[in-house]
C-alpha cells in the first residue's frame, strides 16, 4: 500500500519539476504552465493529508474544500495571466523573457 510519504514525495517532485521549469525555460507561456503544475502539486499533498488524517472515520473535508478554492483561484489566475500575455505580445511582439527587460535593474 502507498504510504503518506509516497504521496508527499510524488507531490514534491512534481513541484520541483515546476520550479525547475520556471527557472530554466525562457518562453513566458511555458513558465506559466510550470506555475500551474506547482499549484496542482500543492493540491496533491493537501488531498493526501485529507485522506490520511481521518476525522471520525471520514476524510477531512476541510482540505478538499481548500483544494476546491485553490482550483477556482487558479482558473481566475490563468484567465488574467493569459490576457496579460496577449496584451504584452501586442505591445512587444515577443513572449521571450530575455527580450522583456524594461524593469530589469
Amino acid at each position: 500500500m502507498p504510504t503518506l510519504a509516497n504521496y508527499l514525495l510524488a507531490s514534491g517532485i512534481l513541484f520541483a519539476i515546476g520550479l525547475g521549469g520556471v527557472m530554466l525555460r525562457r518562453s513566458i507561456i511555458i513558465i506559466f504552465m510550470s506555475l500551474e503544475m506547482m499549484l496542482s502539486a500543492a493540491n496533491l499533498s493537501l488531498v493526501a493529508f485529507s485522506r490520511y488524517g481521518l476525522v471520525s472515520g471520514h476524510q477531512n473535508y476541510n482540505a478538499q474544500v481548500l483544494v476546491f478554492f485553490i482550483i477556482t483561484v487558479a482558473a481566475a489566475e490563468v484567465a488574467v495571466g493569459l490576457a496579460i500575455i496577449v496584451s504584452l505580445y501586442r505591445a512587444r511582439q515577443t513572449t521571450h523573457v530575455e527580450d522583456l527587460d524594461t524593469l530589469k535593474f
Binding site: F68, I71, L82
Partner: peptide, 29 residues
C-alpha cells in the same frame, strides 16, 4: 485517495478549460 469529486473537478477545470485556454493562446500568438 478517494477524492472523486476533486478528481473530476481537476479533469473538468484544469485538463478541460484551462488547457484549452492555453492551447488557444499558443495558436493565437
Amino acid at each position: 485517495l478517494d477524492a472523486c469529486f476533486i478528481g473530476i473537478i481537476q479533469v473538468l477545470v484544469y485538463a478541460g478549460a484551462v488547457m484549452v485556454l492555453f492551447l488557444f493562446i499558443i495558436m493565437l500568438l
